[in-house]
Design a protein around this nucleic acid. Structure first.
Length: 533
RNA sequence: CGGGGUGUGGCCUAGUUGGCUUAGGGCGUCUGGUUUGGGACCAGAAGAUCCUGGGUUCGAAUCCCAGCACCCCGACCA
Protein backbone atom coordinates (compact mmCIF):
# COMPACT_ATOMS: atom_id res chain seq x y z
CA UNK A 1 0.00 0.00 0.00
CA UNK A 2 2.78 2.34 0.94
CA UNK A 3 4.56 1.37 -2.18
CA UNK A 4 1.57 2.22 -4.26
CA UNK A 5 1.27 5.63 -2.66
CA UNK A 6 4.86 6.40 -3.38
CA UNK A 7 4.52 5.24 -6.91
CA UNK A 8 1.54 7.48 -7.45
CA UNK A 9 3.42 10.39 -6.13
CA UNK A 10 6.32 9.80 -8.40
CA UNK A 11 4.00 9.47 -11.37
CA UNK A 12 2.34 12.73 -10.55
CA UNK A 13 5.60 14.52 -10.08
CA UNK A 14 6.88 13.17 -13.36
CA UNK A 15 3.72 14.20 -15.11
CA UNK A 16 3.92 17.66 -13.71
CA UNK A 17 7.46 18.08 -14.84
CA UNK A 18 6.32 16.99 -18.26
CA UNK A 19 3.45 19.41 -18.31
CA UNK A 20 5.76 22.19 -17.35
CA UNK A 21 8.04 21.43 -20.21
CA UNK A 22 5.21 21.34 -22.66
CA UNK A 23 3.99 24.65 -21.43
CA UNK A 24 7.35 26.30 -21.82
CA UNK A 25 7.56 25.01 -25.34
CA UNK A 26 4.17 26.46 -26.08
CA UNK A 27 5.20 29.81 -24.85
CA UNK A 28 8.31 30.09 -26.89
CA UNK A 29 6.43 28.87 -29.91
CA UNK A 30 3.57 31.24 -29.50
CA UNK A 31 5.33 34.40 -28.69
CA UNK A 32 8.62 34.22 -30.56
CA UNK A 33 10.02 37.70 -30.13
CA UNK A 34 8.51 40.60 -28.24
CA UNK A 35 7.85 38.64 -25.10
CA UNK A 36 7.35 41.05 -22.27
CA UNK A 37 9.29 40.15 -19.19
CA UNK A 38 7.02 37.78 -17.35
CA UNK A 39 8.50 38.41 -13.94
CA UNK A 40 7.87 42.14 -13.90
CA UNK A 41 4.74 43.31 -12.13
CA UNK A 42 1.74 41.75 -13.84
CA UNK A 43 2.97 42.20 -17.37
CA UNK A 44 2.13 38.72 -18.47
CA UNK A 45 1.30 38.32 -22.09
CA UNK A 46 -2.26 37.21 -22.47
CA UNK A 47 -2.12 33.72 -23.88
CA UNK A 48 -5.79 33.65 -24.69
CA UNK A 49 -5.47 36.39 -27.21
CA UNK A 50 -3.42 34.45 -29.66
CA UNK A 51 -4.70 31.38 -31.45
CA UNK A 52 -2.93 28.09 -31.69
CA UNK A 53 -1.40 28.03 -35.17
CA UNK A 54 -2.68 25.65 -37.81
CA UNK A 55 0.75 24.17 -38.22
CA UNK A 56 1.08 23.41 -34.53
CA UNK A 57 -2.27 21.79 -33.86
CA UNK A 58 -4.97 22.00 -36.47
CA UNK A 59 -7.84 20.74 -34.30
CA UNK A 60 -6.96 23.10 -31.50
CA UNK A 61 -6.72 25.93 -34.01
CA UNK A 62 -10.22 25.10 -35.20
CA UNK A 63 -11.56 25.27 -31.65
CA UNK A 64 -9.63 28.48 -31.02
CA UNK A 65 -11.14 30.14 -34.08
CA UNK A 66 -14.62 29.32 -32.85
CA UNK A 67 -13.88 30.65 -29.38
CA UNK A 68 -12.10 33.77 -30.65
CA UNK A 69 -14.89 34.63 -33.06
CA UNK A 70 -17.45 33.86 -30.37
CA UNK A 71 -19.42 31.55 -32.65
CA UNK A 72 -20.39 28.85 -30.18
CA UNK A 73 -19.91 27.57 -26.68
CA UNK A 74 -19.93 24.15 -25.14
CA UNK A 75 -23.15 23.22 -23.44
CA UNK A 76 -23.77 21.28 -20.25
CA UNK A 77 -25.25 18.57 -22.44
CA UNK A 78 -22.71 16.16 -23.76
CA UNK A 79 -22.03 16.52 -27.46
CA UNK A 80 -24.35 19.49 -27.87
CA UNK A 81 -23.22 23.04 -28.46
CA UNK A 82 -24.74 26.44 -27.97
CA UNK A 83 -24.64 28.49 -31.13
CA UNK A 84 -23.99 32.07 -30.06
CA UNK A 85 -25.27 35.15 -31.92
CA UNK A 86 -22.14 35.50 -34.06
CA UNK A 87 -22.40 31.92 -35.20
CA UNK A 88 -26.14 31.92 -35.57
CA UNK A 89 -26.02 35.06 -37.71
CA UNK A 90 -23.94 33.11 -40.22
CA UNK A 91 -26.44 30.26 -40.18
CA UNK A 92 -29.32 32.69 -40.71
CA UNK A 93 -27.48 34.13 -43.66
CA UNK A 94 -27.03 30.64 -45.09
CA UNK A 95 -30.68 29.85 -44.48
CA UNK A 96 -31.99 32.93 -46.21
CA UNK A 97 -29.84 32.39 -49.29
CA UNK A 98 -30.52 28.66 -49.59
CA UNK A 99 -34.19 29.09 -48.84
CA UNK A 100 -34.56 31.49 -51.75
CA UNK A 101 -32.62 29.13 -54.00
CA UNK A 102 -34.87 26.20 -53.08
CA UNK A 103 -38.01 28.21 -53.62
CA UNK A 104 -36.76 29.31 -57.02
CA UNK A 105 -36.92 25.63 -58.03
CA UNK A 106 -40.50 25.27 -56.83
CA UNK A 107 -39.88 23.88 -53.36
CA UNK A 108 -42.16 24.87 -50.47
CA UNK A 109 -41.44 24.79 -46.74
CA UNK A 110 -43.32 22.72 -44.19
CA UNK A 111 -42.68 21.33 -40.74
CA UNK A 112 -42.91 17.77 -39.43
CA UNK A 113 -42.69 16.42 -35.86
CA UNK A 114 -39.52 15.97 -33.86
CA UNK A 115 -40.68 12.55 -32.66
CA UNK A 116 -41.00 9.49 -34.81
CA UNK A 117 -42.63 6.20 -33.72
CA UNK A 118 -39.84 3.69 -33.53
CA UNK A 119 -41.71 1.26 -35.78
CA UNK A 120 -41.55 3.74 -38.69
CA UNK A 121 -37.79 3.56 -38.79
CA UNK A 122 -37.73 -0.17 -39.25
CA UNK A 123 -39.94 -0.26 -42.32
CA UNK A 124 -36.99 0.24 -44.62
CA UNK A 125 -34.32 -2.35 -43.88
CA UNK A 126 -31.17 -0.43 -44.79
CA UNK A 127 -32.53 2.72 -43.25
CA UNK A 128 -33.05 1.21 -39.82
CA UNK A 129 -29.66 -0.41 -39.94
CA UNK A 130 -28.05 2.92 -40.77
CA UNK A 131 -29.62 4.86 -37.95
CA UNK A 132 -30.60 2.44 -35.19
CA UNK A 133 -27.30 2.74 -33.35
CA UNK A 134 -27.47 6.49 -32.98
CA UNK A 135 -31.04 7.21 -31.95
CA UNK A 136 -32.18 9.05 -28.86
CA UNK A 137 -35.22 7.17 -27.63
CA UNK A 138 -38.13 8.60 -25.67
CA UNK A 139 -39.72 5.94 -23.50
CA UNK A 140 -41.62 7.93 -20.85
CA UNK A 141 -43.77 11.01 -20.75
CA UNK A 142 -43.74 12.06 -17.10
CA UNK A 143 -41.47 12.62 -14.10
CA UNK A 144 -42.26 11.80 -10.52
CA UNK A 145 -40.36 12.24 -7.30
CA UNK A 146 -39.16 8.99 -5.79
CA UNK A 147 -38.72 8.39 -2.05
CA UNK A 148 -35.43 10.31 -1.98
CA UNK A 149 -36.94 13.27 -3.82
CA UNK A 150 -35.16 12.47 -7.07
CA UNK A 151 -37.11 12.88 -10.30
CA UNK A 152 -37.60 9.59 -12.10
CA UNK A 153 -39.40 8.84 -15.37
CA UNK A 154 -42.80 7.27 -15.14
CA UNK A 155 -45.66 6.93 -17.55
CA UNK A 156 -44.15 4.45 -19.92
CA UNK A 157 -45.09 4.98 -23.56
CA UNK A 158 -46.95 2.27 -25.42
CA UNK A 159 -44.52 2.59 -28.29
CA UNK A 160 -41.17 4.36 -27.82
CA UNK A 161 -40.51 7.45 -29.92
CA UNK A 162 -37.19 8.29 -31.43
CA UNK A 163 -35.94 11.83 -31.84
CA UNK A 164 -35.58 12.25 -35.59
CA UNK A 165 -32.12 11.48 -36.95
CA UNK A 166 -33.63 12.34 -40.37
CA UNK A 167 -37.27 12.60 -41.36
CA UNK A 168 -37.87 10.32 -44.34
CA UNK A 169 -40.17 7.98 -42.47
CA UNK A 170 -42.45 10.45 -40.74
CA UNK A 171 -42.72 12.60 -43.83
CA UNK A 172 -43.51 9.75 -46.17
CA UNK A 173 -46.18 8.42 -43.82
CA UNK A 174 -47.88 11.76 -44.49
CA UNK A 175 -47.03 11.77 -48.17
CA UNK A 176 -48.99 8.52 -48.49
CA UNK A 177 -52.06 10.38 -47.31
CA UNK A 178 -51.52 13.44 -49.44
CA UNK A 179 -50.61 11.87 -52.74
CA UNK A 180 -53.40 10.16 -54.65
CA UNK A 181 -53.20 11.28 -58.23
CA UNK A 182 -50.54 12.12 -60.79
CA UNK A 183 -51.96 15.64 -60.38
CA UNK A 184 -50.54 15.72 -56.83
CA UNK A 185 -47.05 15.28 -58.24
CA UNK A 186 -44.41 16.38 -58.00
CA UNK A 187 -44.56 17.12 -54.29
CA UNK A 188 -41.64 19.34 -53.38
CA UNK A 189 -41.21 20.04 -49.67
CA UNK A 190 -38.40 21.22 -47.48
CA UNK A 191 -38.09 21.68 -43.75
CA UNK A 192 -35.63 23.58 -41.58
CA UNK A 193 -35.19 21.60 -38.42
CA UNK A 194 -32.97 20.19 -35.72
CA UNK A 195 -31.84 16.58 -35.79
CA UNK A 196 -30.35 14.27 -33.20
CA UNK A 197 -27.79 11.63 -33.96
CA UNK A 198 -26.12 10.13 -30.93
CA UNK A 199 -22.54 10.41 -32.07
CA UNK A 200 -19.67 9.07 -30.03
CA UNK A 201 -17.19 11.79 -30.85
CA UNK A 202 -18.30 15.32 -31.52
CA UNK A 203 -16.74 18.57 -32.71
CA UNK A 204 -18.50 21.93 -32.86
CA UNK A 205 -20.34 22.45 -36.15
CA UNK A 206 -18.74 19.44 -37.82
CA UNK A 207 -20.47 16.80 -35.77
CA UNK A 208 -22.68 17.45 -32.79
CA UNK A 209 -25.34 15.29 -31.21
CA UNK A 210 -28.00 17.82 -32.10
CA UNK A 211 -27.55 19.82 -35.26
CA UNK A 212 -29.51 22.16 -37.46
CA UNK A 213 -30.15 21.50 -41.12
CA UNK A 214 -32.63 21.57 -43.90
CA UNK A 215 -34.00 18.46 -45.52
CA UNK A 216 -35.83 18.49 -48.79
CA UNK A 217 -38.09 15.58 -49.72
CA UNK A 218 -39.67 15.27 -53.11
CA UNK A 219 -41.98 12.76 -54.74
CA UNK A 220 -42.26 12.25 -58.51
CA UNK A 221 -44.15 10.26 -61.07
CA UNK A 222 -41.11 8.89 -62.84
CA UNK A 223 -37.66 7.62 -62.06
CA UNK A 224 -36.09 10.04 -64.51
CA UNK A 225 -37.78 13.06 -63.01
CA UNK A 226 -36.78 12.10 -59.47
CA UNK A 227 -33.18 11.43 -60.38
CA UNK A 228 -33.04 14.72 -62.25
CA UNK A 229 -34.37 16.49 -59.15
CA UNK A 230 -31.71 14.88 -56.95
CA UNK A 231 -29.05 16.12 -59.34
CA UNK A 232 -30.67 19.52 -59.63
CA UNK A 233 -30.55 20.04 -55.87
CA UNK A 234 -26.94 18.91 -55.75
CA UNK A 235 -26.23 21.62 -58.29
CA UNK A 236 -27.99 24.14 -56.05
CA UNK A 237 -25.62 23.08 -53.28
CA UNK A 238 -22.62 23.42 -55.55
CA UNK A 239 -23.62 26.92 -56.55
CA UNK A 240 -24.19 27.88 -52.94
CA UNK A 241 -20.89 26.39 -51.79
CA UNK A 242 -18.83 27.95 -54.54
CA UNK A 243 -20.52 31.28 -55.11
CA UNK A 244 -21.42 32.13 -51.53
CA UNK A 245 -19.16 30.12 -49.25
CA UNK A 246 -16.34 30.50 -51.77
CA UNK A 247 -15.67 26.84 -51.06
CA UNK A 248 -14.83 24.77 -54.14
CA UNK A 249 -16.51 21.39 -54.21
CA UNK A 250 -16.42 18.27 -56.31
CA UNK A 251 -19.71 16.78 -57.36
CA UNK A 252 -19.97 13.06 -57.57
CA UNK A 253 -21.69 9.89 -56.60
CA UNK A 254 -21.17 8.03 -53.34
CA UNK A 255 -20.03 4.45 -53.41
CA UNK A 256 -22.45 1.72 -52.34
CA UNK A 257 -20.94 1.58 -48.86
CA UNK A 258 -20.88 5.34 -48.35
CA UNK A 259 -24.33 6.10 -49.65
CA UNK A 260 -27.29 7.13 -47.50
CA UNK A 261 -29.05 4.28 -45.72
CA UNK A 262 -32.06 3.59 -47.90
CA UNK A 263 -30.98 5.41 -51.04
CA UNK A 264 -30.55 3.98 -54.51
CA UNK A 265 -27.89 6.58 -55.29
CA UNK A 266 -26.34 9.29 -53.14
CA UNK A 267 -24.84 12.35 -54.74
CA UNK A 268 -22.42 14.55 -52.84
CA UNK A 269 -20.38 17.69 -52.89
CA UNK A 270 -16.97 17.17 -51.35
CA UNK A 271 -14.70 19.97 -50.20
CA UNK A 272 -11.09 19.93 -49.11
CA UNK A 273 -10.06 21.55 -45.87
CA UNK A 274 -6.73 23.26 -45.24
CA UNK A 275 -5.34 20.28 -43.36
CA UNK A 276 -5.87 18.02 -46.36
CA UNK A 277 -8.97 16.28 -45.04
CA UNK A 278 -12.18 16.12 -46.98
CA UNK A 279 -15.53 17.43 -45.80
CA UNK A 280 -18.75 16.00 -47.12
CA UNK A 281 -20.62 19.26 -47.44
CA UNK A 282 -24.01 18.35 -48.83
CA UNK A 283 -25.78 15.28 -50.11
CA UNK A 284 -28.70 14.61 -52.37
CA UNK A 285 -30.25 11.18 -52.63
CA UNK A 286 -32.22 9.39 -55.28
CA UNK A 287 -34.37 7.10 -53.17
CA UNK A 288 -36.07 5.26 -56.00
CA UNK A 289 -39.11 3.48 -54.60
CA UNK A 290 -37.28 2.22 -51.52
CA UNK A 291 -39.50 4.24 -49.23
CA UNK A 292 -42.62 4.61 -51.32
CA UNK A 293 -43.16 0.86 -51.31
CA UNK A 294 -43.07 0.27 -47.52
CA UNK A 295 -44.87 3.54 -46.83
CA UNK A 296 -47.35 2.94 -49.64
CA UNK A 297 -46.91 6.29 -51.29
CA UNK A 298 -48.99 5.57 -54.38
CA UNK A 299 -50.77 7.50 -57.10
CA UNK A 300 -53.03 6.77 -60.06
CA UNK A 301 -51.33 7.66 -63.31
CA UNK A 302 -53.05 9.09 -66.37
CA UNK A 303 -54.09 5.65 -67.54
CA UNK A 304 -55.66 4.92 -64.14
CA UNK A 305 -52.97 2.53 -63.07
CA UNK A 306 -51.64 2.49 -59.52
CA UNK A 307 -47.94 3.41 -59.20
CA UNK A 308 -45.44 3.97 -56.43
CA UNK A 309 -43.82 7.41 -56.44
CA UNK A 310 -40.13 7.99 -57.03
CA UNK A 311 -38.44 10.04 -54.33
CA UNK A 312 -35.50 12.21 -53.41
CA UNK A 313 -34.13 13.71 -50.24
CA UNK A 314 -31.33 16.22 -49.83
CA UNK A 315 -29.78 18.22 -47.04
CA UNK A 316 -27.09 20.54 -45.79
CA UNK A 317 -26.41 21.32 -42.16
CA UNK A 318 -24.65 23.67 -39.78
CA UNK A 319 -21.64 21.61 -40.72
CA UNK A 320 -21.23 24.10 -43.54
CA UNK A 321 -20.13 26.61 -40.91
CA UNK A 322 -17.32 24.23 -40.03
CA UNK A 323 -16.47 24.05 -43.72
CA UNK A 324 -16.46 27.80 -44.00
CA UNK A 325 -14.12 28.09 -41.03
CA UNK A 326 -11.68 25.49 -42.27
CA UNK A 327 -11.65 26.71 -45.84
CA UNK A 328 -10.75 30.36 -45.30
CA UNK A 329 -9.67 31.12 -41.77
CA UNK A 330 -6.06 31.72 -40.77
CA UNK A 331 -3.89 31.89 -37.69
CA UNK A 332 -5.33 35.28 -36.82
CA UNK A 333 -8.88 33.93 -36.66
CA UNK A 334 -12.02 33.61 -38.66
CA UNK A 335 -12.27 34.78 -42.27
CA UNK A 336 -15.81 35.10 -43.59
CA UNK A 337 -16.50 35.46 -47.30
CA UNK A 338 -18.30 38.80 -47.88
CA UNK A 339 -21.51 37.26 -49.17
CA UNK A 340 -22.00 35.39 -45.90
CA UNK A 341 -20.66 37.98 -43.51
CA UNK A 342 -23.37 39.28 -41.19
CA UNK A 343 -21.15 42.35 -40.85
CA UNK A 344 -19.17 42.84 -44.07
CA UNK A 345 -17.69 46.19 -43.04
CA UNK A 346 -16.70 47.70 -39.72
CA UNK A 347 -15.73 51.35 -39.37
CA UNK A 348 -13.49 52.34 -36.50
CA UNK A 349 -13.26 56.00 -35.60
CA UNK A 350 -9.98 57.01 -34.04
CA UNK A 351 -9.58 60.00 -31.79
CA UNK A 352 -7.22 61.40 -29.17
CA UNK A 353 -9.51 63.92 -27.56
CA UNK A 354 -13.16 64.75 -27.14
CA UNK A 355 -12.95 67.41 -29.86
CA UNK A 356 -11.37 65.00 -32.30
CA UNK A 357 -14.05 62.48 -31.53
CA UNK A 358 -16.69 65.09 -32.25
CA UNK A 359 -15.11 65.85 -35.63
CA UNK A 360 -14.47 62.27 -36.69
CA UNK A 361 -17.79 60.72 -35.79
CA UNK A 362 -20.01 62.58 -38.26
CA UNK A 363 -17.68 61.55 -41.07
CA UNK A 364 -17.83 57.96 -39.91
CA UNK A 365 -21.60 58.04 -39.76
CA UNK A 366 -21.90 59.58 -43.17
CA UNK A 367 -19.73 56.90 -44.74
CA UNK A 368 -21.60 54.14 -42.90
CA UNK A 369 -24.83 55.54 -44.27
CA UNK A 370 -23.48 55.52 -47.81
CA UNK A 371 -22.28 51.95 -47.49
CA UNK A 372 -25.60 50.83 -46.05
CA UNK A 373 -27.26 52.60 -48.95
CA UNK A 374 -25.44 50.13 -51.21
CA UNK A 375 -26.94 47.23 -49.26
CA UNK A 376 -24.06 46.32 -46.93
CA UNK A 377 -24.56 46.17 -43.18
CA UNK A 378 -21.73 48.47 -42.11
CA UNK A 379 -21.14 48.59 -38.40
CA UNK A 380 -19.53 51.43 -36.45
CA UNK A 381 -17.31 50.54 -33.51
CA UNK A 382 -17.41 53.67 -31.40
CA UNK A 383 -16.65 51.94 -28.12
CA UNK A 384 -14.33 53.72 -25.76
CA UNK A 385 -11.46 51.31 -26.32
CA UNK A 386 -8.06 51.77 -27.82
CA UNK A 387 -7.93 51.05 -31.55
CA UNK A 388 -5.53 48.11 -31.31
CA UNK A 389 -7.79 45.78 -29.36
CA UNK A 390 -10.67 46.70 -31.67
CA UNK A 391 -8.62 45.80 -34.75
CA UNK A 392 -7.76 42.43 -33.27
CA UNK A 393 -11.30 41.77 -32.23
CA UNK A 394 -12.78 42.35 -35.69
CA UNK A 395 -9.95 40.42 -37.23
CA UNK A 396 -10.76 37.41 -35.05
CA UNK A 397 -14.40 37.73 -35.99
CA UNK A 398 -13.59 37.61 -39.67
CA UNK A 399 -15.14 40.89 -40.83
CA UNK A 400 -13.99 41.25 -44.47
CA UNK A 401 -13.24 44.99 -44.50
CA UNK A 402 -12.14 47.30 -41.73
CA UNK A 403 -12.17 51.03 -42.26
CA UNK A 404 -10.20 53.35 -40.00
CA UNK A 405 -11.00 57.04 -39.86
CA UNK A 406 -9.06 59.46 -37.65
CA UNK A 407 -8.13 63.13 -37.76
CA UNK A 408 -5.15 62.40 -40.02
CA UNK A 409 -7.60 61.06 -42.56
CA UNK A 410 -9.86 64.07 -42.25
CA UNK A 411 -6.95 66.27 -43.26
CA UNK A 412 -6.19 64.10 -46.27
CA UNK A 413 -9.88 63.55 -47.03
CA UNK A 414 -9.27 59.84 -47.15
CA UNK A 415 -9.86 56.67 -45.12
CA UNK A 416 -7.73 53.61 -44.42
CA UNK A 417 -9.24 50.38 -45.70
CA UNK A 418 -7.91 46.99 -44.58
CA UNK A 419 -8.71 43.60 -46.09
CA UNK A 420 -9.16 40.82 -43.59
CA UNK A 421 -8.09 38.07 -45.99
CA UNK A 422 -4.76 39.56 -47.10
CA UNK A 423 -4.11 42.18 -44.43
CA UNK A 424 -3.57 44.64 -47.27
CA UNK A 425 -3.98 48.27 -46.20
CA UNK A 426 -4.81 51.14 -48.50
CA UNK A 427 -5.83 54.76 -48.43
CA UNK A 428 -9.01 55.54 -50.29
CA UNK A 429 -10.42 58.99 -51.03
CA UNK A 430 -13.40 59.59 -48.83
CA UNK A 431 -15.75 60.53 -51.66
CA UNK A 432 -15.29 57.26 -53.50
CA UNK A 433 -14.98 55.13 -50.37
CA UNK A 434 -18.46 53.60 -50.35
CA UNK A 435 -18.29 52.63 -54.00
CA UNK A 436 -14.87 51.16 -53.42
CA UNK A 437 -16.21 49.03 -50.58
CA UNK A 438 -18.47 47.30 -53.05
CA UNK A 439 -15.60 46.74 -55.47
CA UNK A 440 -13.38 45.45 -52.71
CA UNK A 441 -15.98 43.07 -51.26
CA UNK A 442 -16.53 41.54 -54.69
CA UNK A 443 -12.79 41.21 -55.11
CA UNK A 444 -12.38 39.53 -51.71
CA UNK A 445 -15.16 37.10 -52.51
CA UNK A 446 -13.51 36.19 -55.82
CA UNK A 447 -10.02 36.00 -54.32
CA UNK A 448 -11.11 33.72 -51.50
CA UNK A 449 -12.61 31.31 -53.97
CA UNK A 450 -9.60 31.47 -56.27
CA UNK A 451 -7.24 30.81 -53.39
CA UNK A 452 -9.28 27.89 -52.09
CA UNK A 453 -9.62 26.49 -55.59
CA UNK A 454 -5.90 26.68 -56.17
CA UNK A 455 -5.25 24.89 -52.90
CA UNK A 456 -7.83 22.26 -53.69
CA UNK A 457 -6.54 21.59 -57.18
CA UNK A 458 -2.96 21.40 -55.99
CA UNK A 459 -4.09 18.75 -53.55
CA UNK A 460 -5.77 16.38 -55.93
CA UNK A 461 -3.21 13.81 -56.96
CA UNK A 462 -3.59 10.99 -59.38
CA UNK A 463 -2.09 7.75 -58.21
CA UNK A 464 -1.86 4.45 -60.05
CA UNK A 465 -0.55 1.95 -57.52
CA UNK A 466 -1.38 1.17 -53.94
CA UNK A 467 2.19 1.89 -52.88
CA UNK A 468 1.93 5.33 -54.38
CA UNK A 469 -1.48 5.74 -52.83
CA UNK A 470 -0.23 5.07 -49.32
CA UNK A 471 2.85 7.20 -49.74
CA UNK A 472 1.05 10.25 -51.11
CA UNK A 473 -1.68 9.95 -48.52
CA UNK A 474 0.80 9.89 -45.72
CA UNK A 475 3.12 12.57 -47.01
CA UNK A 476 0.69 15.01 -48.55
CA UNK A 477 -2.90 14.11 -47.70
CA UNK A 478 -5.56 15.72 -49.83
CA UNK A 479 -7.68 14.00 -52.45
CA UNK A 480 -6.28 10.95 -54.16
CA UNK A 481 -7.71 10.18 -57.55
CA UNK A 482 -7.29 6.50 -58.18
CA UNK A 483 -8.70 3.88 -60.52
CA UNK A 484 -11.11 1.65 -58.65
CA UNK A 485 -13.02 -1.42 -59.73
CA UNK A 486 -16.10 -0.48 -57.62
CA UNK A 487 -15.67 -3.60 -55.51
CA UNK A 488 -16.55 -2.79 -51.88
CA UNK A 489 -13.84 -5.15 -50.67
CA UNK A 490 -11.10 -2.98 -52.19
CA UNK A 491 -12.64 0.12 -50.68
CA UNK A 492 -12.88 -1.58 -47.29
CA UNK A 493 -9.25 -2.61 -47.41
CA UNK A 494 -8.13 0.93 -48.11
CA UNK A 495 -10.22 2.22 -45.25
CA UNK A 496 -8.91 -0.40 -42.93
CA UNK A 497 -5.28 0.11 -43.82
CA UNK A 498 -5.09 3.85 -44.45
CA UNK A 499 -8.18 5.44 -42.86
CA UNK A 500 -8.96 6.98 -46.23
CA UNK A 501 -12.45 6.48 -47.64
CA UNK A 502 -13.96 6.92 -51.03
CA UNK A 503 -15.38 10.41 -51.07
CA UNK A 504 -17.09 10.09 -54.40
CA UNK A 505 -16.89 9.03 -57.98
CA UNK A 506 -16.69 12.45 -59.61
CA UNK A 507 -19.26 13.21 -62.29
CA UNK A 508 -16.76 15.22 -64.18
CA UNK A 509 -13.94 12.97 -65.30
CA UNK A 510 -12.38 11.72 -68.46
CA UNK A 511 -13.26 8.27 -69.74
CA UNK A 512 -10.47 5.84 -69.15
CA UNK A 513 -10.05 2.20 -68.48
CA UNK A 514 -7.43 1.23 -65.96
CA UNK A 515 -6.46 -1.15 -63.24
CA UNK A 516 -7.94 -0.94 -59.76
CA UNK A 517 -5.38 0.51 -57.40
CA UNK A 518 -5.99 -2.39 -54.99
CA UNK A 519 -6.84 -5.57 -56.83
CA UNK A 520 -5.63 -4.71 -60.32
CA UNK A 521 -9.06 -5.57 -61.70
CA UNK A 522 -10.60 -3.60 -64.49
CA UNK A 523 -11.72 -0.05 -63.63
CA UNK A 524 -13.82 2.22 -65.78
CA UNK A 525 -12.87 5.41 -64.04
CA UNK A 526 -11.45 7.03 -61.00
CA UNK A 527 -12.75 7.50 -57.51
CA UNK A 528 -11.69 10.24 -55.16
CA UNK A 529 -10.24 9.03 -51.88
CA UNK A 530 -9.35 11.04 -48.79
CA UNK A 531 -9.31 11.07 -45.06
CA UNK A 532 -12.50 12.77 -44.09
CA UNK A 533 -14.21 14.60 -41.27
C1' C B 1 -18.91 -0.89 -25.97
C1' G B 2 -13.17 -2.09 -25.34
C1' G B 3 -7.95 0.31 -23.84
C1' G B 4 -5.63 4.57 -21.32
C1' G B 5 -5.98 9.11 -18.47
C1' U B 6 -7.92 13.29 -15.57
C1' G B 7 -11.23 15.78 -11.92
C1' U B 8 -9.34 22.72 -7.39
C1' G B 9 -13.64 30.04 -9.71
C1' G B 10 -14.97 30.97 -17.03
C1' C B 11 -9.61 29.12 -18.41
C1' C B 12 -4.49 27.59 -16.71
C1' U B 13 -2.96 26.10 -12.22
C1' A B 14 -0.26 26.11 -6.54
C1' G B 15 -1.16 23.15 -2.51
C1' U B 16 -1.75 16.40 -2.37
C1' U B 17 4.53 12.79 3.28
C1' G B 18 -3.30 15.27 6.75
C1' G B 19 -2.86 21.10 10.72
C1' C B 20 0.98 27.01 8.66
C1' U B 21 -5.58 27.30 3.77
C1' U B 22 -10.07 32.00 6.12
C1' A B 23 -7.78 27.16 -0.58
C1' G B 24 -2.66 30.96 -3.10
C1' G B 25 -1.35 32.80 -8.01
C1' G B 26 -1.81 34.02 -13.37
C1' C B 27 -5.20 34.93 -17.40
C1' G B 28 -10.00 36.44 -18.52
C1' U B 29 -14.41 39.27 -16.67
C1' C B 30 -16.61 43.72 -14.27
C1' U B 31 -16.19 49.03 -12.17
C1' G B 32 -13.63 53.84 -11.93
C1' G B 33 -9.73 56.73 -13.80
C1' U B 34 -5.65 57.79 -17.15
C1' U B 35 -5.39 56.64 -22.31
C1' U B 36 -6.61 56.04 -27.76
C1' G B 37 -3.36 55.02 -35.77
C1' G B 38 -2.02 47.18 -33.69
C1' G B 39 -3.15 43.21 -27.84
C1' A B 40 -1.56 49.95 -22.71
C1' C B 41 -1.38 51.51 -17.39
C1' C B 42 -3.21 52.47 -12.26
C1' A B 43 -6.77 51.38 -8.50
C1' G B 44 -10.64 48.37 -6.99
C1' A B 45 -14.33 44.27 -7.33
C1' A B 46 -16.91 39.86 -8.27
C1' G B 47 -16.23 34.79 -8.94
C1' A B 48 -14.70 27.87 -5.66
C1' U B 49 -20.46 22.67 -2.94
C1' C B 50 -11.57 21.62 -3.88
C1' C B 51 -16.52 16.04 -9.09
C1' U B 52 -20.34 13.34 -5.72
C1' G B 53 -21.47 10.13 -1.61
C1' G B 54 -19.69 7.39 2.35
C1' G B 55 -15.56 6.15 5.65
C1' U B 56 -10.87 6.94 8.73
C1' U B 57 -9.32 11.12 12.02
C1' C B 58 -9.30 15.86 17.24
C1' G B 59 -8.70 17.74 12.10
C1' A B 60 -9.48 15.82 4.92
C1' A B 61 -8.61 19.42 -1.34
C1' U B 62 -4.88 15.92 0.77
C1' C B 63 -5.74 9.03 3.16
C1' C B 64 -9.49 4.67 2.07
C1' C B 65 -13.99 2.74 -0.55
C1' A B 66 -17.87 3.36 -4.03
C1' G B 67 -20.06 6.12 -7.74
C1' C B 68 -20.21 9.97 -11.47
C1' A B 69 -18.35 13.13 -15.14
C1' C B 70 -15.02 14.52 -18.74
C1' C B 71 -10.76 13.82 -22.11
C1' C B 72 -7.64 10.76 -25.44
C1' C B 73 -7.16 6.15 -28.65
C1' G B 74 -10.39 2.48 -31.31
C1' A B 75 -15.52 1.07 -33.62
C1' C B 76 -19.73 4.69 -35.69
C1' C B 77 -20.78 9.23 -38.39
C1' A B 78 -23.79 15.20 -42.05
Amino acid sequence: MEKKAIKNKVDKKAKKALNLNVKQDNQTDLFCANIPNISKGGKNMDTNKRLTSRAKDYSQWYLDVIAAADLADNSPVRGCMVIKPNGYAIWEKMQSILDAMFKATGVENAYFPLFIPVSFLSREAEHVEGFATECAVVTHHRLEKDSSGKLVPTGKLEEPLIVRPTSETIMYEMYAKWINSYRDLPLLLNQWANMVRWEMRTRPFLRTTEFLWQEGHTAHATREEADARARQMLEVYRVFAEEYLAMPVIKGQKSESEKFAGAVHSYTIEALMQDGKALQSGTSHFLGQNFSRPFKVKFLDQSGEEQFVWQTSWGVSTRLIGGLIMTHSDDKGLVIPPKLAPTPVVIIPIWASAEEHKKVLPVVEKLAGEIRGLGYAAQIDDRDLRPGPKFFEWEKKGVPIRIEIGSKDLVKQSVVMVRRDTGEKQEVGITGAAAFVKTLLDRIQADLFAKALKFRDENIREVETYEEFKQVLQEKGGFLSAPWCLNPACEARIKEETKATTRCIPFDQRKETGKCVICGGKSEGRALFAKAY
